[in-house]
Design a protein around this nucleic acid. Structure first.
Length: 882
RNA sequence: GGGAGCAUAGCUCAGUUGGUUCAGAGCGUCUGCCUUACAAGCAGAGGGUCGGGGGUUCGACUCCCUCUGCUCCCACCA
């Protein structure tokens, strides 16, 4: 077989992915084997693949492929999330571009557009995952708004409503004036923002609504809301303002009279000590308003514009109004001064609009009982967080959880199944028919046409928290008493969940709640929390910064295997990843290394008459041990989710041990064939190595595995068993390591002396070297003959130490005696100091008395080793001087 | 304001109950090589008072205190 010197991934990857699909290797059905289940964190249905997805899904794929090769019935369920706000805003934008405003069309028309959009863009990200090699069970692909999954959401709502957990109420919510919906507390991101601090003069009223010449100063960041002020508040302890008690104050510009109230909420040291209370537009002010029974005046509309209740600046955007009112206040003599000011401002996670605190009627889910159980699930270890530092964060959140605002003023999503009677009462039922029946019980005269369904839809997370259940069994969600179907019974709970810490509360915690509620069991055993993918400079990857490479471009350039490996090499749980293209290059290079090792091996012709050379026999014995040793280490890494350590161990095993040492040792002389025993052993090792690499680099390993020896249709490396760790002889590995050290020393010596690798040398060895490895040293260091010696006599040459053994390479005429002497004396000096420190330790009675025996033994070994080295060094120095 | 975490080689990070000749890895750097698998490569080399200070201990990268610097999460300071 003629193979090019460089591996080209493109055709190989498409070919094998198609082969895997055709043979349904990814598909899983319940059987008698142990299941291994992962559900995908569903990407937004209209999303496109970014580096975060690459990280997450590569990890998932590594885990699921490894499980499959461990003989488990592995099932990775893919799917997408309808992402109500994100998708709806995209559809709105698209319609806007076509000249259609959402307000001008009906809900049904809008949803038709939305579904069209979904059909058009919905599959993109899933097909991109195929490019990455993701071994999802595509037959099980789900969408959070599939009809049956939506039914599960509705049933869940009805269930919690009947349980008394869902209620409706007026609350101060986080209003997103761009998305035109309330968002939950978790969807608000607070960022320090530079703004202005306006110091305003509020004049005291003369009691008839006219200003006196006395005024107080109030500091605010939001002068455009003064028209909604309901009072001015001072701290009752604040003597500076006692004279104000009982007085009335006039709101600037509109001259509205409002009372002075006292509340200890106000901090005397902050601002001027006077607080304007605006119950409709500030959460704290709302609380104060309730305490003091103040009227609520809402002057800002859905879009963040001032409404007619503001009396002035009606129709102006809140930020425009702020600018304009500054001028008006200055003109009216109400503006004392303006300062620069930095304070935390809430932004919508989805639209980045400044959140407007706003009062509105919303639906809520009580969280306290659910959170208590979900906390217990993690505290007890039923769900393990990896890394476990997140337990603290998790606990803190669960202990301070607030009720979940689950309604959204959107159309894209599951519509809340509450039906209003004309008199304002409502019923909650799974469908309109049941609702009518229930409504008739309240009022027999009600007809279907009288009933009006709630306009709002449910928060997206209210569907994705059911994901580990609903992808298998859509009836079970909302019906804790029901028997799970066969799939759910078999696959639930899933094993591992890989996701980002940013959605630990949004999603992970809520899945645990839903799992506990409906399955009486947690939804997964391990939660692997990845970091955020950042660029080399530590900046978050974002479209606006343009610092995020397109994964598909990277795949096209380096191959999916290269991209995967590059990602896996630098991932450790819970740590952010500073991604750089050079890592992918490293991955690509590794592919090429594997490819070329294969080329080398396949290029050999077997000579049946050839006897196995000693060096090859040594190599085979050693590598078998080394392989077993590494398999054990890799298994240990997997068990602790140390994925980058696992691949690094495999990487070094392949590159350093297999290629640099093993292949060089067994490589036959140019022009000759290889003996059968060595060839077969090599092929066996190669097979094992491919299997170890496969979860990380599925494509190239399949390609090469298929070509090691002829395979039948339907055979695949994917379904082979991973190499199992066997017994290994650590002493043999250790002896070989010593041989390698000798080789390195001799090569280094060559470099120093400018000797070509082609020039054979001779070697003299003192007692203590593992002589059975000598043929390996000879082959790799090009040593023509080796003699054991008691002393090296007066031959001219260079001596060096390998651990405690002195070795000597005779080099007539190339030795600078003074230089050698200096080197040896430096080594002696170091060794003597080392010995002194060891002896100091050993002469410390408390050390000998308190330290464990083995630690003391190690020190004694150091002492004797050091003594023998000193002896050798002294002898070598003496010989040089002679 | 509350909570959590981090600081180890030029960069990114390991260091698993305080004890092996333990100060490591990968990348990068430097030197020499187009050696008949691979220059996307081979061979070799250099590089760190483990952030500063103090303490506990026979022994500290590891445990405790403190200082400095950074990050994240939560939170209503107008």
């Amino acid at each position: 077989m003629e193979l090019p010197a460089k591996y080209s991934p493109a055709e190989v990857e498409d070919k094998w992915y198609a082969y895997w699909l055709k043979n349904k290797f990814f598909h899983s059905e319940p059987d008698e084997r142990e299941p291994y289940t992962i559900v995908i964190p569903p990407p937004n249905v209209t999303g496109i693949l970014h580096m975060g997805h690459v990280l997450n899904n590569t990890l998932n794929d590594v885990l699921v492929r490894k499980a499959r090769m461990d003989g488990k019935n592995a099932c990775w369920v893919p799917g997408t999330d309808h992402a109500s706000i994100a998708t709806e805003s995209k559809v709105v934008a698209k319609l806007k571009a076509e000249g259609i405003s959402k307000e001008d069309i009906t809900r049904e028309e809008f949803l038709k557009h939305a579904w069209e959009w979904k059909e058009k863009h919905g599959g993109i990200i899933l097909s991109q995952l195929r490019k990455l090699g993701a071994s999802c069970d595509w037959d099980r692909t789900k969408f959070t708004m599939d009809p049956d999954l939506s039914d599960a959401v509705i049933n869940t709502f009805v269930y919690f409503y009947r349980k008394g957990y869902i209620y409706r109420g007026v609350r101060m919510v986080n209003w997103d004036p761009v998305g035109l919906t309330a968002v939950s507390d978790e969807e608000v991101i607070h960022r320090d923002t530079v703004s202005k601090f306006y110091h305003l003069r509020y004049f005291i009223s003369d009691g008839k609504g006219n200003p006196t010449d006395k005024y107080i100063i109030i500091a605010t960041t939001r002068p455009e809301t003064i028209m909604a002020d309901a009072a001015v508040c001072i701290n009752p302890e604040d003597e500076r303002y006692h004279w104000l008690k009982g007085k009335k104050i006039l709101i600037p510009l509109i001259n509205k009279e409002i009372p002075i109230i006292e509340d200890s909420y106000v901090e005397m040291g902050f601002g001027t000590g006077c607080l304007k209370v605006t119950p409709a537009h500030d959460v704290n002010d709302y609380e104060i308003g309730i305490r003091h029974n103040l009227p609520v005046l809402d002057i800002i509309d859905d879009h963040g514009r001032l409404n007619e209740k503001a009396q002035i600046l009606v129709g102006e955007d809140r930020f425009e109004a702020r600018k304009k009112i500054e001028g008006m206040l200055r003109e009216a003599g109400n503006l004392e001064k303006v300062e620069d000011y930095t304070s935390p401002v809430g932004y919508s996670e989805r639209t980045n609009a400044v959140i407007e605190p706003r009062l509105s009627m919303q639906w809520f889910l009580k969280m306290d009982a659910l959170a208590k159980d979900a906390l217990e699930s993690v505290e007890s270890g039923k769900v393990k967080l990896i890394p476990d530092k997140y337990r603290n964060t998790y606990r803190h959140w669960m202990e301070n959880v607030r009720d979940w605002c689950i309604s959204r003023q959107l159309w894209w999503g599951q519509r809340i199944p509450a039906y209003y009677l004309p008199d304002g009462r409502f019923v909650v039922e799974a469908d309109a028919g049941a609702a009518l029946k229930a409504a008739k019980e309240l009022d027999p005269s009600v007809t279907a046409a009288d009933l009006r369904q709630d306009e709002d839809v449910l928060d997206t997370w209210f569907s994705s928290w059911l994901w580990p259940i609903s992808v298998f069994d859509t009836h079970k969600a909302g019906h804790p008493e029901a028997q799970p179907n066969r799939d759910l019974a078999y696959y639930y709970p899933t094993n591992d969940l890989v996701t980002g810490p940013d959605i630990l509360f949004f999603w992970v915690a809520r899945m645990i709640m839903a799992g506990n509620e409906f399955m009486h069991d947690v939804p997964f055993r391990n939660v692997y929390l990845t970091g955020i993918v950042r660029d080399k400079l530590g900046r978050k990857m974002s479209k606006t910064l343009g610092n995020s490479p397109d994964p598909l471009d990277l795949i096209a350039k380096y191959g999916a295997d290269g991209v995967r490996l590059g990602m896996m090499l630098c991932t450790s749980a819970g740590n952010d990843i500073l991604f750089d293209e050079s890592q992918v290059e490293q991955g690509r290079n590794f592919c090429n290394k594997v490819w070329n090792a294969f080329r080398l091996m396949k290029g050999w012709s077997i000579d049946s008459a050839a006897k196995q050379p000693e060096a090859a026999a040594i190599a085979v014995r050693w590598f078998r041990n080394k392989l077993d040793m590494t398999v054990a280490a890799v298994e240990d890494h997997y068990s602790k989710f140390r994925i980058s350590d696992a691949i690094m161990a495999i990487y070094k095993l392949f590159w350093d041990d297999f290629c640099a040492w093993y292949l060089e040792l067994v490589k036959p002389a140019y022009g000759s064939g290889i003996d059968r025993a060595t060839y077969e052993a090599t092929e066996g090792f190669f097979d094992a190595l491919l299997k170890m690499i496969h979860p990380f680099m599925p494509f190239i390993t399949e390609e090469l595995w298929q070509n090691i020896s002829p395979r039948k249709e339907g055979e695949t490396i994917m379904l082979q068993r991973s190499p199992a760790a066997g017994e290994y002889d650590i002493a043999a590995v250790n002896d070989f390591d010593m041989a390698c050290e000798a080789v390195v020393a001799i090569r280094s010596l060559r470099q120093q002396k400018g000797l070509s690798p082609k020039e054979a040398l001779t070697l003299m060895v003192k007692d203590g070297f593992p002589m059975d490895t000598i043929p390996a040293v000879q082959k790799l260091a090009n040593i023509s003959s080796v003699t054991k010696a008691e002393s090296f006599g007066s031959v001219s040459g260079v001596s060096f130490m390998v651990r405690t053994v002195e070795m000597f390479v005779p080099l007539e005429g190339l030795v600078d005696t003074a230089e050698e002497l200096a080197k040896l004396e430096a080594a002696l000096d170091y060794q003597e100091k080392f010995l002194a420190s060891v002896r100091k330790k050993l002469s410390n009675e408390r050390f000998v008395a308190n330290a464990p025996e083995q630690v003391v033994a190690v020190e004694r070994k150091k002492e004797s080793d050091s003594l023998s080295k000193i002896e050798s060094l002294k002898a070598a120095i003496a010989a040089l001087k002679a």
